[in-house]
Write a protein that binds this DNA or RNA. Structure first.
Lengths: 191, 191
DNA sequence: TACGATAGCGAACGATCGTTCGCCGGTCAA
DNA sequence: TTGACCGGCGAACGATCGTTCGCTATCGTA
């Protein structure tokens, strides 16, 4: 229906507040439908467009397009917003960055050995714990009982750890290389 | 109970996958409890610690501490086995980065004019909207109807915008400088 | 050994869930 | 003017919801 857009907006607001989608009855109260059957129709339409989905328990969950930007803001009184599109609006930063919470750890960066990769001291890197990684990944390895942040490279068939700062040497592990996890994200706070 | 930590981890993973918390019955199947009554006890304990809450419809929703992430000390050299993380020290990424949600905007960075400040194209900067800033702040200014990310400097008594990349020129605004907001944080996702 | 505390189980409860159906009142093309 | 179509309504359905209760098994302390 024509109002589906507004209804979807209400749903997004509710989700932003509670991080959960409500029952059909509450959706009805929320958007102004008096019958759960009407809500069911609405949900069916939203499902068809990919805004919501169902869990196996017949609960609603956000669909792929649920977090799409509404694009309404682009008409801002001559004020352009050309730099901002496809930013993860509606999704919290945490949810955007952390895919597997139980394997995720935050580590504060010490030192500037990766500064050419844009990783500065004081930054916090988001680590997904795992014991293997691909060439080119930035990893946290355990060298001499200490955490080390470096990029994984291959050199004459051997794995090496390359800092991204010319002032630091390449690390060529003698024995096995113990990988603690892989860097999947980063954040930084200015004060 | 002692396993509550693992159970919470399962819940967080489920939420990361589905963006929704499941019913008591499914939680039981998820964490290995055969009775919904046991799940109710578990939920009660998690509620007491602020990890989950209830909506008025008696559904579960994430609580304040649900999005806390363990923060590892990079100096933890002694133990090579990081399995046991019992540290109650957690950090919520959103709360850490966003102090004033209503004044905060996210902008995806285009171009490499600030790359020496560790701000790369594709990064997302966290902007606090305000019309004034201090010397030394990284700001989003409006130049020729476009957003520009630069650092604020003073040059012979006049305000200028300095890129942090030798390949770009300093911008010396002719008239007034219109400031959109100040960069208070940044995040980046690797894939 | 005896005890209270605790975690989990299994069964049962009324309430609410999402779904389905038939009906109503508009809109629009024929 | 008619009639098919469509969004919404209201009632009813079985299924599942979260809650509650009493019970068992295990544990540490006395």
């Amino acid at each position: 229906m024509a109002n589906d857009g507004q209804h979807l907006a209400r749903l997004r607001d509710y989700y932003a507040r509670h991080r959960v989608l409500p029952s059909y009855a509450r959706i009805g109260a929320l958007v102004g439908l008096n019958s759960k059957a009407s809500v069911a129709d609405l949900v069916l339409r939203l499902k068809a467009e990919g805004f919501v989905e169902s869990t196996p328990d017949r609960r609603l969950k956000p669909g792929k397009r649920f977090f799409d930007r509404p694009l309404a803001e682009s008409v801002r009184t001559g004020l352009p917003s050309p730099a901002a599109d496809s930013s993860p609006e509606g999704l919290s930063i945490d949810e955007y960055l952390v895919a597997h919470p139980s394997k995720t750890v935050l580590i504060t960066v010490k030192g500037d050995s990766m500064i050419d990769a844009g990783i500065h001291p004081g930054d916090v890197v988001i680590i997904e714990k795992r014991t293997s990684a691909n060439i080119g990944d930035i990893v946290v390895a355990i060298i001499d009982n200490e955490f080390t942040l470096k990029r994984l490279h291959k050199e004459r068939g051997r794995i090496v750890l390359k800092p991204e700062n010319k002032a630091y040497p390449v690390i060529r592990p003698k024995g096995d290389l113990e990988i603690f996890g892989v860097v999947v994200g980063l954040f930084r706070k200015y004060r």
